[in-house]
Structure formats: structure tokens, C-alpha cells
Design a protein around this nucleic acid. Structure first.
Lengths: 121, 121
DNA sequence: TCCTTTGTTGAATGATTGTTCAACTGGTGA
DNA sequence: TCACCAGTTGAACAATCATTCAACAAAGGA
């Protein structure tokens, strides 16, 4: 449940349209949900990670391939993949010495597509 | 055009699947495009801004209303709105002393919905 | 004109974050 | 068993970012 409006005394001004604010207040989500959403979108908010995701959209690849493709160290790729893994944006399978990463589901592609739509118009 | 693979000598390992990497390389976008995408998604990567956008999805509001709703200062809201304005995620209209903000198009709502889908499953 | 209020802006600060480096794990083949 | 390579991890550092504060602009009412 979203918290009550009167719990924010640190606001430095009055509501001007109390009716509208209260109505919107009732439709807002729990604060933790916004934190979760922000945590998710933050992962798309880095050029290296976006490129990583777009590359994995084309084909599954191991860490070395991705490092060579993006021109950064294996360590950097591995750190990024860990974040993406925790957020369930990528999945992986091990085959011998190699670990192959791919997109976890089609949310990633759809989000990237919407973003591309926006910057293209 | 994406730059050639051989331009990344700082990579600390060899490609393991050269054929795959070269094929994916050919499908990647320009680096500036990834920077633009990341810049866009970065705006969704903050809990305050996400809440701000979700609130504006419900109804247009002025800065004071938003400050009261989110419990932060007008200044903070104004700074955030400026970033969102530059990225063409929100638009505004002035009416007397008040400036009313609203979502610029339906991309915002669609991106938020996809994000919500992802964290909900 | 003066005062009040809404909203914007720039600088400063504390927090967050991406990359690198070095050390380490685990599987493969000799 | 040993050496080698792929991949992971944690600490450290530089860069980026969100918020606050103070000053300012813009509009309305007295």
C-alpha cells in the first residue's frame, strides 16, 4: 500500500490541487515496487550492457566471445552478466570450460525495441 | 556502422567462436545508438523518476502537486522533470503561475508496463 | 510598485556505479 | 599431477548521479 500523503512534511510547498493529488495517490504502487522497477531499468541504462543484451539477442555467446565483441575484459563482462543474471534478464548453460549466455525471455527484446522506437522518432 | 573487431586489442582473451562473433558483429548498431538507448533507459532507472512517470500516467500535475505527492522538494522534482523533458518523455504547459506536466507519448506507459510484467512473474 | 508564490537553475556534496587489477575456482588435456 | 584456459569474485578507484541549498526569474494579487 502507498503511504499517506500527510507523511511527507519535508515537502516545501502546499498541494495546489488536493483532489487530483489524492486521487493519483490512491493509484500509486508500493514504494518497493518502484525500487524494483528502477533496479530493472537501471540495467538497461548503460551502453555496454545494452550492447551486451542486443548482442545476445542475435545469438548465445560465451564470455570470451562477448569480451572480444565489445572490446572489454572478461572480468567486466562477467560482472555485468552477473547483474543481468540476478535480474533474470539472461540465462546461461555450461559446456565444458565455456559458459554460454542468452536472453532469459522476450521481455528484453521488447523493451529494447520500445526504447529504439522512442529515440528514432 | 559498427567498428571492426580487430580494433579492440585491449580484450584479454581470444574469440572462441569467430564465426558467430563476426556474424553478430554485423548485426550490431552504431555505438552512439547504444549510448542513446542507455541514456533513455537511465531515466527509468531511478525510483523517484519512475514514480514520477507513473503518477503522470494517471493525471497531469504541477510541480507543487508532484512534490507533495512524492514527498520531495520542488527543486528535486524540477531537476528530474528537466531530464525527462530533454528526453521527450514528458511535456508541459504553463497556466498562470503553474506549469502542468504530462507524459509526452505512450512509449512511457508501454515501457513501464513491460518492466512491471517482468518483475511480476 | 511591492509582496507572495510557483518554478528554474547552478554549485556543492554524499552516494552509487562501472571498470580494472589481482587472486581465485573449476574443468580439460598432457 | 601439473599446466593451461575460461570464468568468477572482491577490493579499489574514478566517474557519474540525485538531492539539497541558495539565488534567481516569472506571474498574480493587493
Amino acid at each position: 500500500m502507498a503511504e499517506d500523503i500527510t507523511m511527507h512534511p519535508e515537502c516545501d510547498c502546499d498541494m495546489i490541487h488536493e483532489d487530483v493529488v489524492r486521487r493519483v495517490q490512491g493509484k500509486l504502487l508500493d514504494k518497493d515496487t518502484y525500487i524494483e522497477l528502477a533496479t530493472l531499468f537501471k540495467l538497461f541504462g548503460d551502453a555496454t550492457r545494452v550492447q551486451l543484451l542486443h548482442a545476445l539477442e542475435q545469438h548465445e555467446m560465451c564470455v570470451c566471445d562477448l569480451a572480444a565483441l565489445l572490446g572489454v575484459t572478461k572480468s567486466a563482462i562477467s560482472h555485468q552478466l552477473k547483474s543481468l543474471r540476478i535480474a533474470r534478464l539472461v540465462k546461461y548453460r555450461r559446456d565444458g570450460q565455456n559458459v554460454y549466455y542468452s536472453l532469459a525471455d522476450d521481455h528484453v527484446q521488447r523493451i529494447l525495441d520500445l526504447g529504439y522506437d522512442h529515440i528514432s522518432e
